[in-house]
């Protein structure tokens, strides 16, 4: 009981202390350099009232969702395939290892040349940011399936189709879930970057737009919203993971 109170109270106090420090610091600078917490809240309300905000949030979420789902839809089957067939993996792995360290942002010039300005380059960057974590964790999850599971399947005469769909895929699932989780984080981070570079809408664009008008309060409002939405998505992901994990019998 005491520890639970502690677990809520201490972070709350830390938050209050942070806001107080922020307010204190803001007093020493002009609002163009560092607006205070109240200014930022006011900016959020202003953006919300004139209707701009919800459109930006909506388009950002759609971009994020579609790019993420597209990455997952390609990376999981590819990862399952490469994890299962180690010769193919051996052939392709060096290529993956070279491409992976290239920041998705570095792809931006090419993305604009290929897809033009607008939605597509941003979606492409988010896609890349989500793709590699899902691909790599899926491969290692499949390769990490305990040999005993396969031995049992072989003993009962399970065919390769049944072994794949009903042993390897479910056995790899908790590992894949970790990849999905990591990918949410990296993809969300790159969303803002992607939208800052070329898009004409979305939270990233909103921040760039605010900068062009020297609206520092709106810049920080955008940043705060990106943080809060990211937290929300992360929490939602956690909840889904726990639900599936319970069904899978991997968590108690």
């Amino acid at each position: 009981m005491k520890s639970r109170l502690f677990a809520i109270l201490v972070p709350f106090l830390a938050g209050v202390a942070f806001i107080a420090l922020w307010q204190l610091a803001a007093g020493r600078y002009t609002p163009e350099q560092l607006p205070g917490p109240a200014d930022v809240l006011k900016a959020i309300k202003e953006l919300s009232d004139n209707g701009v905000l919800w459109g930006h949030i909506g388009i950002s979420l759609v971009r994020f969702g579609s790019a993420y789902l597209l990455a997952v839809a390609i990376a999981i089957p590819l990862g399952l395939f490469l994890g299962r067939f180690s010769r193919c993996h051996a052939a392709i792995d060096p290529l993956i290892q070279v491409l992976r360290p290239i920041s998705p942002i570095a792809w931006f010039p090419l993305a604009v040349l290929w897809f033009g300005i607008g939605n597509a380059p941003a979606v492409f960057i988010i896609f890349l940011a989500a793709f590699y974590p899902v691909l790599l964790t899926t491969i290692s999850a499949v390769r990490g399936v305990p040999p005993l599971y396969l031995k049992v399947a072989g003993n009962f005469g399970a065919g390769s189709r049944m072994t794949f769909l009903r042993v390897i895929v479910p056995a790899a699932f908790p590992g894949i879930m970790v990849g999905l989780h990591i990918a949410v984080g990296t993809a969300w981070i790159h969303l803002v970057a992607g939208e800052m570079l070329g898009a004409q809408s979305g939270l990233g664009f909103m921040i760039v737009d605010a900068r062009n008008f020297l609206r520092t309060d709106q810049i920080m409002a955008g940043m705060l919203l990106v943080g809060l939405l990211g937290l929300g998505i992360y929490r939602g992901m956690k909840a889904v993971e726990r639900l599936l994990g319970r069904r899978w019998g991997v968590t108690s």
């Binding site: 005993l148 599971y149 049992v152 069904r247 991997v250």
Partner: peptide
């Protein structure tokens, strides 16, 4: 087997 080989899911 000693380690059962049950499928946890």
């Amino acid at each position: 087997f000693q380690d059962y080989g049950l499928y946890p899911w």
